[in-house]
Amino acid sequence: MIEVEHLSKSYGPHPAIEDVFFTVEPGEILGFLGPNGAGKTTTMRILSGYLPASSGTARVAGYDVHTQSMAVRQRIGYLPENPPLYNDMTVLGYLHFVARIKGVTAGDRRKQVDLAIQQCSLETETQTLIGRLSKGFRQRVGLAQAIVHNPPVIILDEPTVGLDPRQIMEVRNLIKGLAGNHTIILSTHILPEVSMTCDRVAIINHGKIVATDAPDTLMEELIGRLGYAVEVGGMSQLLTQKLMAISGVREVQVEEIPDSAHTRLQITCHGEMEPGSAIANAIIKSGCQLHEMRRTRPTLEDVFLELTTEEEPLPTAEAAIDKTDADDPELIVDP
């Protein structure tokens, strides 16, 4: 339903997004996760047809967002970062206006507006001037505006920002309720939001996509995978080979510690296997000294931080596990 390929956009010499790619299947909710300033809003704006891309293509429902802008605009509902509201209109008047400019026919308008009001729980505020609404209600009017014409594709830029926890739950439930009939892409910088609402997640950082997967798979793959941080003395090439031969070891990264005879090893394991004792044995048997060894298991936040603070564009298991969980030392050997 949404296909984005090699999408780039720069403001002057500064690239906002580079080679962004992802697809969203019909009826799916894609979470677009990234820290502030990563290029989420830029991508959303390009998808909505508001901004032209510098290069690359984005297609919504088979139409190019730039060359077939009108066809795309008819098929999307878009909630920008700041809800586009007229403060001097009532909620009802505003939604009728939006329905009109989105091309809802006069016969359906009332029904559609009523439905949007009901879906966003705005029944009590229909006659209130938008300028007098609280932040939470403004956000909900913004959401109602995006769904009032029942568009097949809904683009939501930070839909839960500024809401209190109860409102956040309501909005998330609303979004989940819309899935199936609608294809939804929503951006957020809140990690748990993605795992709660989305079918799939694309992580963006410094304008580049660093990972795309189902949130569960992504988190399981990255979090569930154990690793060991080991500090040894008398490192040799042979040791690396021996370690790699141990069942369950996936990768060994070697890093010299400056001004020291010690070497730091980052050992990544497959799945939930725990070859800790085998690793320790291998090190001792090969005549190296084992100075420190601890198990590493990155938390959800660590994964996110790691993916989004590294300059490296591709997420690798090593990168994720690089972050160690120092609170959980399994084994410290200091001869």
Partner: peptide
């Protein structure tokens, strides 16, 4: 200033 231009510009209006 209000950001409502974004609404008009992403609606099927020329």
């Amino acid at each position: 200033r209000n950001g409502t231009l974004e609404l008009l510009a992403t609606s099927p209006l020329t």
